[in-house]
Amino acid sequence: MEKRFPLPPFTQETALQKVQMAEDAWNSKDPQRVSLAYSVDTEWRNRDQFIRGREEVVQFLSKKWERELDYRLKKQLWSFTDNRIAVCFEYEWHNQAGHWFRSYGNELWEFDENGLMQRRLAAINDVAINSNERRLAEKES
């Protein structure tokens, strides 16, 4: 059976690990990589969309990152219980026309016994910003 460590029940340390792992995966902008954190029958509510299963996750994320360019995300642990984690997040992106946005939201995550996310409920709002207002730009090395 496929497992995604750390497994529930979560502690402060392992909940923080899950949040950081999710942030890193989403910032890769690799839909296949991101989908592996979810159960094969995962259920999502993302804004006004309802997504079921890994294949739909990959399709959704592929379309998302085709229109949300230079996407950069920051997640923060809000709370956790045995197999649930709540996060706050913000991400920045621009569209094809070069207009920048910051998207704010909250997610509720529920994990199965193998550490795979079986349910993700997301509420997200977008705010137009100027490029000089960005906070999440990738650091130059």
Rank of each mutant, 00 (worst) to 15 (best):
S35C: 10
Q20A: 13
Y71W: 13
K139Q: 15
P9G: 08
K139Y: 05
S35Q: 06
Y104T: 06
R45D: 02
A123D: 10
E107V: 10
F101G: 03
D30N: 15
F60P: 00
I129W: 04
V58I: 15
Q76C: 03
E138L: 10
T42H: 06
V34T: 11
W78P: 00
Q17W: 00
D126M: 00
F5T: 10
F101S: 14
H99A: 12
L108M: 09
R119L: 10
D41E: 09
E66F: 00
L136H: 11
S79L: 01
Y91D: 15
I51M: 04
E140V: 08
R52E: 10
Q20T: 12
E56Q: 15
R45M: 11
F111V: 01
T11K: 09
R67T: 14
W109R: 02
G53R: 08
Q118K: 10
S79N: 14
L77H: 04
M21L: 15
R54Q: 14
A22F: 10
R4C: 11
A137H: 02
E43S: 14
S39I: 03
E55Y: 01
V57L: 07
M1L: 07
L108S: 13
E66H: 09
N27C: 04
L136G: 15
R135I: 05
D24P: 01
D82G: 10
R33Q: 15
A15H: 02
M21H: 14
Q17V: 14
A22V: 02
E55C: 00
T14V: 03
M21Y: 09
L121M: 07
S28K: 03
W100C: 05
W78Y: 14
A86P: 02
R84N: 12
R47Q: 13
P9M: 08
F89A: 06
I85F: 01
Q118H: 04
A122D: 08
E43W: 08
